[in-house]
Amino acid sequence: MNITVFCSAFALDERYTKPVREFARLLGEHGHTLVWGGSNAGLMGVVADEVKAAGGRLVGVNVGLLSHKTYQGADEMVMTADLAERKAVLLARADAIVVLVGGLGTLDEVTEVVELKKHGLHDKPVVLLDTEGFYEGLRIQLARMEAEGFLPRPLNELVGFASDGATALALAEA
């Protein structure tokens, strides 16, 4: 499978990197291809290093403005003109999407892929690895949207939440 991963480009505390390493190692061991933002920075670099070390394939999708942080050693690197094109390519290349901890860019990415799924423009699994309860606030907001009629499909059809890397990968593979 091609598993697109959205995550932070910042170096983070071990409480966040340890579950990411576990997930990435399993992704590689299961023979999947990592499709990610193509960066060597922060968690993006951690994910790529772990997948590669575990025997997985790497497909980076980077953007010109971040080309100075391009991961060296990817099996394939796609350069895009802007962030919108990057998101479109990341989704197009995905069989499943797994969202790790991240900032505003990651939040933008996950909300877009869930919105597109809500409208039936794709039906790929979308899984959030909820490390340390990082996405609990988002889960609460999405549940409220569902309860108050803002979602045309049940929330569990749009996105799954996992508390560990093994569960995240299993949901992506399902």
Rank of each mutant, 00 (worst) to 15 (best):
F6P: 03
F23N: 03
M145I: 07
P152N: 15
V126G: 02
C7K: 10
L90R: 08
H30N: 14
D130A: 10
I97Q: 03
K52Q: 07
V5T: 09
S39W: 03
I140V: 15
N62Y: 07
V89H: 09
V127E: 05
L138Y: 11
A162V: 02
A9G: 14
V99F: 04
R25A: 11
F134L: 04
L129Y: 04
G38E: 05
E115I: 14
V47C: 10
V127T: 07
G165I: 06
H30Y: 15
G105E: 13
G160Q: 12
A96E: 01
K87A: 00
L155M: 11
H32F: 11
I97P: 05
W36F: 13
R21S: 12
E85C: 08
T80Y: 00
N156R: 15
F134T: 04
K117W: 06
F23S: 02
V63C: 05
K69C: 12
C7F: 13
A168M: 06
T131I: 14
G165T: 05
E85S: 10
L121E: 08
A143E: 12
L155I: 11
L158H: 05
G37K: 03
A9W: 09
V5L: 04
V20P: 00
A92T: 09
D82E: 06
L100C: 09
V47Q: 00
V35L: 01
G137M: 06
H30F: 14
E132F: 11
L171P: 02
A81D: 06
R15T: 11
E132Y: 07
E50H: 08
L151E: 04
A81Q: 09
L66D: 10
V159D: 02
S8W: 07
G28H: 07
A74N: 08
A11C: 09
A143I: 04
E146T: 01
K124Y: 07
M145A: 13
D164P: 00
V98M: 00
V99N: 01
R153W: 06
Y16Q: 02
M77R: 02
G137I: 13
N2G: 09
E85H: 14
L151R: 05
V20M: 00
Y16L: 07
G60R: 01
G42E: 06
L65S: 15
G165R: 01
R21M: 04
T17G: 01
E115C: 14
E157Y: 02
P125T: 06
R57S: 07
L58V: 10
Y16V: 11
A48T: 13
F23H: 04
G64T: 12
L83R: 00
D82Q: 04
G38P: 08
P125Y: 00
F23W: 08
L26H: 13
D130G: 12
L104D: 13
E112Y: 11
G60I: 05
V101C: 11
G105V: 09
E50P: 03
G42Q: 02
E148S: 15
V89A: 08
L116R: 13
A174E: 13
R93F: 04
V46H: 05
G60Q: 00
A81L: 09
E109L: 08
A174V: 12
G28T: 08
